[in-house]
Write a protein that binds this DNA or RNA. Structure first.
Lengths: 211, 211, 211, 211
DNA sequence: GAGTAATCGAGACGGTACGTCAAGTCTTGTT
DNA sequence: AACAAGACTTGACGTACCGTCTCGATTACTC
């Protein structure tokens, strides 16, 4: 079946691009508050109507933007769960760290959470934004979860372990640091975290692993 | 030493109380957006300036409010780390759950994070609010951390374990669920979480523990 | 030539009208202090921004309002300068007297200058308001000035007389009474004033005048 | 009779002086709006209470201040009315010109009326301020009025002339220029004004006068 | 010299309005 | 239809200044 023929002038894809680009620039410059839709439109040389036709809310635009920025983290299943997790979480941590700096002057050293926090708040404000955000995370975490499933299947994790809970422990620790305690999330932290989460669970691997 | 002589009319403690009370009521009724400073002042029968003299921002008021609401969670050190942690985390989870419902109609079932998310965002927006929030959490978490330290000291946790990282795994998982994935945080989840975190670590305790 | 193509939504003339009307009503009711922009907007059923887009200040609004209220005083050149001036000045005096009562309860007998004084003060505060006010008066006084010019041309005034200075004497006396001494400005006063100003000047008219 | 013995601490005359001085400085710097009582008190190193105990209102302070600034214009009765008036009015004009510049940057060329306009408006707002202002002017104008009376008595002015109306013509013209038309008030203007007012009236003097 | 009474400095307070800002909608004419 | 431009509604924000009040500390006069 043919798609229902659209009538009238088609939407400009160029506008989409310009808007997102302008929004990105502004977000980086200023952070989410002091981020005005009017100015995004202005910079994108686009009417506000055009913008609102695409994203009904400032928060919606934010999610769309973050979703686009979200570089797809590669997940390799090398068979060494400890190594694979470390790589994956380090990538996440790096991304978070980049975001937390958004909208702040270089010199500022406050350990704040920036855009991620606003994203979370936006998700809390609008149900549909929440759905979008959760969907984004679900898609993103699908691969690491199967990674854990595979590890358990081959005996690298105890049978009773829940992949989901295990992943909560890992990702949760990262976000907790970022959003709540504000403590730094360096490579050493990630390693220690993975170590400690897998301690005992991998103490008696069915298959030997390269450490 | 004499207390530094106060000059000028002292601040009305009554006003403080009335403001916080009004703010609390309004927050519960409406949630953080649709929570207007003007109205708080109005309900507290206080001039807006009086309010702003104390808290320069809506966000500042929020933190002050949450800090006051924060009922001190009791931590008992029974010697059974698994049990103590479960009790503690359950208390936290219950508190979070209560907060997430703030400002929503009873019927609403969206799994959103409400006030906590806004708190986190507020912390990200203003450095000083961030400091306050982090301080609040630090104070709150001090006791459970020593709990873990004691447990390790008596051999209930492996020597190499970092209390802090361990706590991140636990609290982090809770906040991650609340703020990011939005999945429910029931008693069963808390139990499974504690179990899994202590798995292996407590598999070979130096001292036997009363279950 | 084509009129410069208007872009965007045109300003609502309806809003203009409603604002001025509301402002007028409120000014008459209350006087210039106790005249709140918020309430003008409210009564006009217009957003405050809509009002501020047109007049950036309470003072600007006032001038615009007074300029509109300013009923054009008819000036007839009957050839009898004494008569014509008396008529004109009486009209002015009546207008001033009406304005001075604006915003006062009927019973109040204080001899104050009301709106005119505020208008003058507003002109002193903002350069652009001053320009507007001066322009308003210039337009208004143009006719009587030519009246005087004609009178001098036909010999009803001495050749050396400056119309402008003469007019200052007349109008000035009125405003001086209104704003400074606060003494009443009745029909008899106007007549005496005109008499005295023209005394001697018209003692030896070149052309006879009808009294 | 002895004055009723005052009880309690006497008012500090020093405070009076400091307040007026500070008010003067601030008025000159800023003009009447942007002239904040708080700042006057601050500069005078005086509590606001102390200030308000003396002048119940900003406007009252203004009048008191202007009254003090008002340098007493000398009036000499030389017998030459034209000359005496010119001298007197020139003094007034100079004073007005000084006041109109108050609170403006040197470069500003707008012809506005500054403090005088505010004084007039203040008089219009508060009845008692109005009384004070009118009293001030009455005292000030008493001498020139008797000057005119004397001139009429000795035949230098026609018998039917009203001194008051005549003075209105003179002073009125000055204030009209200052407050309404904003045109300059130079020495030449004053001379022309006096000339024109006395024209005809002094055309047939009983006693000859030195021109 | 111990009251008594008013003043003083400091600064919080209630109140009122101001002018601003940003979000999201609507109305033009144009493409 | 979508678009650019820009006016519109709504709602809140944070500020400014006024004039009042409440402290504790002075500073006189009086008894």
């Amino acid at each position: 079946m043919a798609p229902p023929a659209r009538r009238g002038r088609p939407r400009s894809e160029d506008a989409d691009a310009r808007i997102l680009q302008a929004a990105h620039a502004l977000l980086v410059e200023r952070g989410y508050d002091r981020f005005a839709i009017d100015e995004v439109a202005g910079r994108a040389a686009v009417a506000k109507t055009t913008l609102y036709r695409r994203w009904p809310t400032k928060d919606h635009l934010l999610v769309a933007l973050v979703a686009k920025l979200q570089d797809d983290v590669e997940v390799a299943d090398t068979g060494n769960i400890r190594h694979d997790l470390t790589v994956y979480l380090t990538a996440i941590a790096t991304g978070l760290d980049r975001m937390r700096r958004v909208g702040r002057d270089a010199g500022e050293t406050d350990r704040s959470a920036g855009v991620v926090a606003e994203l979370v708040a936006a998700a809390a404000r609008h149900p549909d934004v929440g759905d979008a955000v959760r969907g984004m995370f679900a898609r993103r975490n699908a691969l690491p979860l199967t990674l854990l499933d595979h590890a358990r299947a081959r005996g690298a994790l105890p049978a009773g372990t829940s992949s989901e809970v295990l992943f909560d422990q890992l990702a949760g620790a990262l976000y907790y640091r970022l959003l709540v305690t504000g403590r730094p999330i360096g490579a050493d932290y990630v390693e220690q975290l993975v170590d400690q989460v897998l301690t005992g669970t991998t103490a008696t691997p069915t298959h030997p692993e390269r450490t």
